[in-house]
Amino acid sequence: MLLTEIAGLPVMDTEEAQSIGQVDSLVIAPRPARVIALRLKRTNGGGTLLTWQYVHAIGPDAVMARVNAREGDEEDLTEHAAACRNLLGRRVLSERGAEIGALQDIDFDPGSGRILSLLTPSGTLAAQGLLGVGSYAVVVQGASHVDRGHLDTGS
Rank of each mutant, 00 (worst) to 15 (best):
M1W: 01
L2Q: 11
E5C: 06
E5F: 06
I6K: 02
I6R: 03
A7W: 04
G8H: 00
T14S: 12
E15Y: 13
E15C: 04
E16T: 04
E16N: 06
A17Q: 14
S19T: 01
Q22M: 00
D24M: 05
S25F: 00
V27F: 01
A29E: 13
A29G: 08
P30L: 09
P30H: 09
R31T: 14
P32C: 04
P32L: 09
P32V: 07
L38M: 05
L38Y: 00
K41G: 02
K41W: 00
N44F: 14
G45P: 08
L50M: 05
L50F: 02
T51W: 07
T51K: 12
T51L: 10
W52D: 00
W52G: 02
Q53F: 09
V55T: 04
H56Y: 10
A57V: 02
A57W: 02
A57D: 10
G59T: 03
D61H: 01
A62D: 00
M64R: 10
M64A: 11
R66F: 11
V67G: 06
V67C: 09
N68F: 15
E71A: 14
G72Y: 02
G72N: 06
T78D: 10
E79A: 15
E79N: 12
H80Y: 12
R85A: 11
L87Y: 04
L87K: 01
L88D: 04
R91N: 10
V92D: 08
L93Y: 09
S94N: 06
S94K: 03
G97F: 06
A98R: 15
I100T: 05
Q104W: 08
I106D: 04
D107N: 11
F108W: 02
D109E: 09
D109A: 10
S112W: 03
S112L: 08
S112D: 02
R114L: 12
S117I: 02
T120S: 09
T120K: 01
P121S: 05
S122Q: 13
A126E: 13
A127Q: 01
Q128D: 15
G129D: 03
G129H: 01
L130T: 10
L131G: 07
V133Y: 05
Y136A: 15
A137D: 11
V138M: 12
V139T: 11
V140H: 05
V146F: 07
V146G: 10
D147Q: 14
R148G: 14
G149C: 09
H150R: 14
L151V: 07
D152A: 13
D152L: 11
T153A: 13
G154D: 08
